[in-house]
């Protein structure tokens, strides 16, 4: 899932200050799971903004809304009238949701209410951790199912750096050294022979380094005829 954090309230308040009518739109997908931009967080943010405005004597109108998946046009369409009747959309989805609204209504302002962080997983209640950088060429079958590119601060492909103490990362002592974890996992799996095979220079062209990525599945695309038919139904 995509893990995000809400921006600090003051930053949001400054961002939206010039606009009278603000539609605050959350998302029920990833950002709801990471407690950043689901229905509850949208409502809490709107209340906090109203309280702040009351204290500071500012008049603004806020509407709290939430869609199923803000990165998909069909769900955004459901709140189109609310978007168009507002002066500003404050998206409480990840940046993908905010950009979807922006792309659908390019003459309408849509600002981000969240800082989008990473591809990660919920580890326990209230804890999310990064486990993938989307490099486009997965190698975790060689590393005990643990991604060293996202989980090592230096994205090392051939073992641990010389800075690790107590099997923790030198950059953040609360985080396990990815290569200590890989070692343990491979040992458990009886695959320690893997640690001495050299992983050569990685081809980063499948990652963002190769430019913006667009994946196309020709067999899944609609023909122009099908597209027309679908538009007619809508």
């Amino acid at each position: 899932m995509i893990v995000a954090k809400r921006k600090p309230l003051n930053e949001i308040a400054d961002m939206v200050a010039p606009y009278k009518k603000v539609a605050v739109i959350g998302c029920r997908s990833c950002v709801a799971i990471c407690l950043a931009g689901g229905e509850k967080e949208v409502k809490m943010t709107v209340s906090a903004l109203k309280v702040k405005n009351k204290k500071e004597g500012r008049r603004q109108e806020f509407e709290a809304l939430v869609v199923e998946r803000q990165c998909e046009k069909e769900f955004v369409k459901e709140v189109e009238d609310k978007i168009l009747s507002s002066d500003l959309v404050l998206s409480m989805a990840c940046s993908l949701g905010a950009q979807t609204i922006g792309d659908m209504y390019p003459d309408h302002l849509c600002f981000p209410g969240l800082n989008t962080g990473f591809f990660g997983v919920p580890e326990e209640q209230g804890v999310w951790s990064e486990k993938c950088v989307g490099c486009g060429n997965c190698i975790i079958h060689t590393t005990g199912g643990i991604c060293p590119i996202s989980r090592c601060a230096k994205s090392m492909l051939n073992g641990p750096c010389g800075g690790s103490s107590n099997r923790k990362c030198e950059v953040n002592l609360d985080i396990d050294c990815a290569w200590a974890a890989i070692y343990d996992r491979l040992k458990l799996q009886n695959r320690l022979d893997l640690i001495e095979s050299i992983t050569p220079a990685k081809d980063w062209s499948a990652s963002h380094a190769g430019g913006r990525r667009v994946y196309v599945r020709e067999d899944a695309r609609l023909t122009p005829h099908q597209k027309k038919g679908r538009e007619a139904v809508q």
């Binding site: 103490s165 070692y183 640690i195």
Partner: peptide, 23 residues
């Protein structure tokens, strides 16, 4: 190359040198 026998995971440290030698 450099190698640090005193960094964890210790079990990896000779292997790490072996890789650098092979490289």
């Amino acid at each position: 190359c450099a190698e640090n026998p005193f960094a964890t995971p210790y079990e990896f440290r000779v292997s790490r040198l072996a890789k650098k030698v092979a490289a």
